[in-house]
Write a protein that binds this DNA or RNA. Structure first.
Length: 684
DNA sequence: CCAGCGGCATTTTTT
DNA sequence: ATGCCGCTGG
């Protein structure tokens, strides 16, 4: 390997090299599963800096998750001769970039730069108030509808006009109020983080120009997952008069599995229309899986109408036969999988961490977990609730949000009621009505004249005390150098620990308090490590806004040798030597959709399910086991299940064993079967 | 009327 | 396991 700057190009195939070196304009890289797409993006960025003379500050790479962004940045740093340059890059999620833009351009949008970011729980409460209902399902539906409208850049008026029935019209009216409410709170939701920059860039040439000069080369990862709004942002960032659009989008239409949250593969077609000189490069060589696995994957996805002809191939051998096993029911499936996995691991001298068990829905994890425990197989479940979504963490964040933005009513309500300080539902309702009358925030209303007439001293006093307390904290944050002392003061003052031990049992309280300590420690680290200590207020705000975008980012202290359990959605982008794909039945995969869901078409839904199957198959490097159940415990009854159409679509041949029911393992014949499994000669 | 308990269903997920 | 709805008893 040479030590020239080009050593990073070593071992790339021809289309990969082309994708990296193509600098004449817009470029779309159709990267099949396992074809080295991340390598292309990271290498291209390194090349932009080292070969093409780009300043790292002028390059942006957009991803969908913090994890992906972080990983990408780390990989780029390793490729660069001066790894420090990687820090200058904008490698972030769409949403983080949105925050950055909004923060800097808030004034242009009539937003204070200390705006709050509402999470979906806050938004839920807002909708709950606006819709005057307690029907959680209805609220969810309205929330989803509003999110899809925002992501599709449909404004409330248009939504109302297009409403097909009274329910939709109702949702559209709530949507209108919701937008107004957020604006009153000086708050934005996650969707706004993309939508507002788009609106700004559309309406303000100068600002748009500024950002175009700032971000001169754009790379977009997982392009097939972009929604209308995100694509619009990309377009606005790269399209300028007399300027060549410079970007590389990387994606795979066969792995588009997020249509249900607004992503649209229309964006892939649209790219060709909007950029007629788009250079399309296909990466079809797969470096991940055996040929047999790829054949099955290709066969399945071949049933979908294709946007771009694409066929994966591999230099790896044929590999192990794919095993499809029918199970009597879901409990036995779980047990069989556990046993098969054990045997397989023993036989291959593999590690537990070489295995993944993938399923369609989270609830399927339950039985499997139990079986793995019985078999003493260590496992980790991917996903799970995020650290930042825990109630105790949100409580603390509410205080920080309120200190930063006193108009943030949801934060006010949460903070003022947790811990309890004599402000209850009735007081808040009166205060809310009063604030509504004066068109001001709850916080402001507390000090407005006339409130005395509405509230008894007994109610008013704790409110005023609370607000004074927040004001003191704010002054403190302004005065002091760091967020650290503020946090300590605050925690002591509100006696959060005492509250926890009061409201929960010993064990729970202990865990929660530890979480709070971890969180504040983490916050302090981040806070003191900040760049400009000039305005501390800022840095506190920085932290709260950053935290709002955090989900599962964290020093996962994993790496114990454990089997990975994951939904198919969460497994995208990952790979495992050995994969068990379970519950492959009609109704599960493909999943039977809601009968009264907003139906696009049945075909479209099946196609997305098929892509999900494709994603599942292509996670496997060396071996793939697919199981399905003849019966499944549904509520109280065992209901009959049919094998998934996708299994037939894999077009498996003789080499792929399909044991009958008699061959399945019961506790009684387990030992014999274990031996049989171990002795079964393996192909190749 | 509200609280507490018991029975029942349960897509996918990020920011 | 969890959360949600509905029913019952105080």
């Amino acid at each position: 390997m040479s030590s020239s700057p080009n050593h990073t190009l070593h071992g790339l195939n021809a289309p990969q090299r082309e994708a990296i070196h193509y600098m004449d304009g817009p470029c779309l890289v159709l990267a099949g599963a396992g074809s080295g797409k991340t390598r292309v993006i990271t290498t291209k960025i390194a090349q932009l800096i080292e070969q093409y003379g780009y300043d790292a500050r002028n390059i942006a790479a957009l991803t969908f998750t913090n994890k992906a962004a972080l990983e990408m940045q780390e990989r780029i740093a390793k490729l660069l001769q001066q790894p420090k340059q990687a820090k200058q890059l904008t490698v972030s999620t769409f949403h983080s970039l949105g925050v950055k833009i909004l923060r800097q351009e808030a004034k242009e949008l009539g937003l204070k730069d200390r705006f709050s970011i509402m999470d979906s729980d806050d938004c839920f409460s807002i909708v709950q108030d606006l819709a005057i209902t307690t029907d959680k399902q209805l609220i969810r539906r309205i929330q989803t509808a509003m999110s899809l409208w925002k992501n599709g850049m449909v404004d409330p008026d248009t939504a109302l006009k297009q409403a097909k029935d009274e329910d939709e019209a109702q949702a559209a009216r709530i949507y209108r109020n919701y937008v107004a409410t957020l604006s009153a709170y000086q708050a934005v939701d996650f969707d706004d983080l993309i939508r507002l920059p788009v609106e700004l860039f559309r309406n303000n040439e100068a600002v748009r120009d500024k950002w175009q000069r700032r971000l001169r080369y754009l790379l977009v990862d997982e392009y097939q997952d972009t929604n209308t709004c995100q694509y619009e942002l990309v377009k606005l960032l790269v399209t300028g008069v007399g300027k060549k659009p410079m970007f590389t989008a990387v994606g795979d239409d066969d792995q588009a599995i997020y249509a249900w949250r607004g992503a649209t593969i229309e964006n892939l077609k649209q790219l060709q229309t909007d950029f007629p000189d788009l250079n399309i490069i296909k990466l079809e060589q797969n470096y991940r899986s055996s040929t047999r696995i790829l054949q099955a994957a290709n066969a399945v996805i071949g049933n979908n109408p294709k946007l771009f002809e694409k066929s994966l191939w591999s230099e790896h051998g044929l590999g192990d036969p794919i095993k499809v096993v029918a199970m009597p029911d879901d409990e036995q499936e779980a047990e069989q999988v556990a046993i098969m996995l054990s045997a397989h691991k023993f036989e291959r001298r593999a590690k537990f961490s070489d295995y993944a068990i993938l399923y369609r829905g989270n609830h399927q994890a339950r039985v499997i977990e139990q079986a793995l425990r019985r078999e003493r197989i260590p496992y980790t479940i991917s996903g799970g609730q995020s650290f930042f979504d825990r109630a105790e963490i949100k409580d603390i964040i509410a205080y920080l949000r309120l200190i930063a933005n006193q108009d943030d009513d949801p934060a006010f309500i949460r903070a003022v009621t947790t811990p309890k300080r004599g402000v209850g539902q009735a007081t808040l309702e009166t205060l809310g009505a009063f604030a509504g009358q004066w068109q001001c925030s709850l916080f402001e209303a507390v000090f407005k004249g006339g409130l005395e007439a509405k509230l008894a001293d007994r109610q008013l006093t704790p409110l005023r005390e609370f607000c004074n307390f927040i004001n003191n904290l704010e002054a403190h944050a302004h005065r002091e150098g760091h967020a650290a002392s503020l946090l300590d003061d605050m925690m002591k003052e509100i006696n959060y620990e005492g509250y926890l031990y009061d409201a929960f049992d010993e064990r729970q309280a202990q865990g929660k308090w530890q979480n709070v300590i971890d969180f504040t420690t983490w916050l302090k680290e981040k806070g003191s490590g900040g760049k400009d200590g000039s305005d501390d207020h800022r840095s506190l705000l920085d932290l709260t806004q950053m935290v709002a975008l955090m989900s599962m980012l964290e020093g996962k202290d994993e790496e114990p040798d454990a089997v990975r359990m994951s939904t198919l959605h969460a497994a995208k982008g990952l790979e495992y030597p050995h994969v068990f794909l379970v519950g492959v039945e009609e109704g599960i995969l493909p999943h039977k959709g809601d009968p009264d869901a907003p139906v696009d078409t049945l075909a479209a839904r099946i196609e997305e399910e098929r892509r999900l199957m494709y994603v599942g198959i292509t996670r496997a490097q060396r071996s793939l086991h697919v199981t399905w159940c003849k019966k499944r415990k549904r509520a109280r009854e065992h209901v009959h299940c049919d094998v998934s159409r996708f299994i037939k679509e894999m077009k498996l041949d003789e080499g792929d064993a399909v044991p009958t029911e008699e061959e399945t393992i019961t506790p009684q014949n387990r030992l014999a079967n274990l031996k049989a499994l171990l002795q079964k000669p393996k192909a190749a």
